[in-house]
Structures are given as structure tokens and as C-alpha cells.
């Protein structure tokens, strides 16, 4: 795993995922370790994402590394039309590792092919966001004590939600029972279902949210965006069908935890926040430990 890029969660085997999660547990106990002394890590955000950038930069600085880069492409040579390849080659001259977020799908894979230093994909358009996936897996394992044999429910936009896609693909390695709740227009694409089928696992699709709540160990909520619907009337019909309210959790399992990649809009009612089953704010904090584990592994210092 040393010096190897992480572009897509598919790049890691089950054992490699577990290795990162185990190491993240160590960093959760001891997040400040001077492992990256003198190393320079580039943080290239070709599109802004404050949440992800701060999480990465915190992870790097707590490990004693230095950060160079930019928070948006607006002030850089990219805005003057420099090609992605040229930007990556230039930055690779100055850094030991590149963390990049880019609005174009496949940009991180391409960067990993032209760069002499490894790349961590911090999101490439609607395609992949593997560190979000790792932190979700970490959160699931931490709250359930295991990743194996769980009933995991995904709710909302399963068609365009890249975090859902990566999580489904990764969880297919862990004998998960999948419950997929969405309007008909936003079902999980067949390219993603292929991974469930290849792992010979079961999935059920629902349009009604209520019936699946008592079965779930994890409820992973996502936002349904208006712009996904060509017909505004269709959006109006489904927009309130997938909102989680505290009262709905009455018959849920004691161990169930609610996850959400954040930011949320209204898909989780604020009355859920005080419920101990709500986990989405702690979930985000886990991102720092997972990113520390990943960076330390790729840099070969752990």
C-alpha cells in the first residue's frame, strides 16, 4: 500500500480496508504523532470543499506534515487554462503526496497515471470519494463492533449518490444484507448492483421507508436534490417521503445508528439529533483518523 494511490475504494482489498480501519483506531487514541516531519503534502482543491479540505489538512498537521496547495482553482494557473497534467507534474516536483479534489470524473485516476508521487482522491465529480467511504466503514464498525453480516439500509438518492455507491461496493466484501429505499426514479444503478450480485449477496428495494426501520443496524441517509428531477411535480411527490423523524425510530433496534455524509438539509429532522442513535456528527470527526491512517500508510511511516 506504500506509495500506492487511492483513487477508488475498489483499489483496496478487504484486508487493506481493515488495515486502514485498525490503524485509524490507533490514531483515534493518539491523533498527534510526529510521523510526517519534513514531509510536504499537496492539497489541491480544484473545486472548493471546506469540510473535506479541513479534515485532510488537520490530519496532516496533527502528524507534523506541511501542507501546500490551494482551496479553489480560481486563483491558480488552472484558471488560465493550464492542463491537469501540467499542474500535477508541477506540484509533484514539490511534494511527497498529492490530495486532490476535482469536479471532473476520472481526473484522479488520470492524475495517478501521470504523477510520480501517489494521489489520494478527495472526490472526483460524481464518481468516487474513497476517504468518505473509509470513514463511513469506520463509523459502522465502531458503532456495531463489526462490519460483517449487518443489515444496512440506504435511503434517498441511490442513483446519483456517490457515497452510497462506494459504500455498497465496499460493504459487498462484508456479507452485508442491503436494504435500498428510494423513489423509483432514484434507484441504485445496475452497475453498482452488479457488485452485490457478484458477491452473491441479497438486496431488497423499497419505496416505503417505515417497514425497513426495525430491521436495520445502520440507516444511511442521503439528500434528494431537486435538480435530479426533470419534472418538478415528481420532486414534490417524493421530497417528503424520505425524511427521518425521531418518532419513526420508536421500533428500531437498540444498536441502530443513523449516518449521513453531511451537509444535511431537511432529510433528517433536527429532533433526531438528540437521540443517541444519531451518529452523523461523530461520523464526520472519524474522517480525521481515517485520513491519518491512510496518509501514514501511503507515506510508509506506519
Amino acid at each position: 500500500m506504500k506509495n500506492r494511490s487511492l483513487v477508488s475504494i475498489n483499489d483496496y482489498s478487504k484486508d487493506e480496508i481493515i488495515r486502514i480501519l485498525d490503524l485509524a483506531e490507533e490514531f483515534e487514541k493518539q491523533p498527534r504523532q510526529n510521523l510526517l516531519d519534513g514531509r510536504v503534502i499537496a492539497s489541491l482543491f480544484f473545486e472548493p470543499s471546506t469540510r473535506t479540505r479541513l479534515s485532510f489538512e488537520t490530519a496532516i498537521q496533527q502528524l507534523g506534515g506541511n501542507v501546500i496547495g490551494f482551496a479553489s482553482a480560481a486563483s491558480t494557473s488552472v484558471s488560465k487554462g493550464e492542463s491537469l497534467k501540467d499542474t500535477i507534474l508541477m506540484v509533484a516536483n514539490y511534494s511527497d503526496l498529492i490530495v486532490m479534489r476535482h469536479p471532473v470524473e476520472g481526473s484522479a485516476r488520470y492524475a495517478s497515471e501521470v504523477s510520480r508521487v501517489p494521489i489520494i482522491n478527495a472526490g472526483d465529480g460524481a464518481n468516487q470519494h474513497p476517504t468518505q467511504c473509509l470513514l463511513d466503514l469506520y463509523s459502522i464498525r465502531k458503532t456495531q463492533g463489526t462490519l460483517d453480516n449487518l443489515d444496512v439500509t440506504f435511503v434517498g438518492d441511490l442513483k446519483y449518490g456517490r457515497t452510497v455507491h462506494s459504500n455498497v461496493i465496499a460493504l459487498s466484501k462484508f456479507n452485508t444484507r442491503f436494504h435500498l429505499v428510494s423513489p423509483d426514479e432514484l434507484k441504485l444503478p445496475s452497475a453498482v448492483k452488479r457488485h452485490i450480485k457478484e458477491a452473491k449477496l441479497n438486496y431488497e428495494q423499497y419505496t416505503d421507508f417505515m417497514e425497513v426501520i426495525p430491521k436495520s443496524d445502520i440507516i444511511y441517509m442521503t439528500r434528494i436534490q431537486r435538480e435530479r428531477f426533470p419534472d418538478p411535480l415528481e420532486y414534490e411527490k417524493v421530497k417528503n417521503a424520505y425524511i427521518l423523524e425521531n418518532a419513526m425510530l420508536e421500533n428500531s433496534k437498540p444498536n441502530v445508528r443513523i449516518l449521513h455524509p453531511l451537509p444535511r438539509v431537511n432529510e433528517i429532522s433536527t429532533d433526531v439529533d438528540a437521540n443517541p442513535k444519531a451518529y452523523y456528527f461523530q461520523q464526520a470527526l472519524n474522517g480525521v483518523f481515517v485520513r491519518q491512517a491512510l496518509i501514514a500508510t501511503i507515506m510508509g511511516v506506519k
Binding site: 492542463s83 471532473v104 470524473e105 476520472g106 488520470y110 464518481n127 468516487q128 452497475a191
Partner: peptide, 28 residues
């Protein structure tokens, strides 16, 4: 978007139809 040569894995779906899975954006 950039000067990159395309690369695909050739897949066959349940109906025997060919599909191309993009090496970069992972779309089919």
C-alpha cells in the same frame, strides 16, 4: 475534458449486449 486517450473494459450484460466500462470515470 483533457487530452487523455480513452480506455475501457469491455463487459457483456445479462442480455449479451456489449458495454464499455470507462477506466477513468467508471461509468458504463
Amino acid at each position: 475534458k483533457e487530452d487523455v486517450k480513452t480506455k475501457f473494459e469491455v463487459l457483456t450484460d445479462e442480455n449479451g449486449q456489449l458495454k464499455l466500462a470507462c477506466h477513468y470515470c467508471e461509468k458504463t
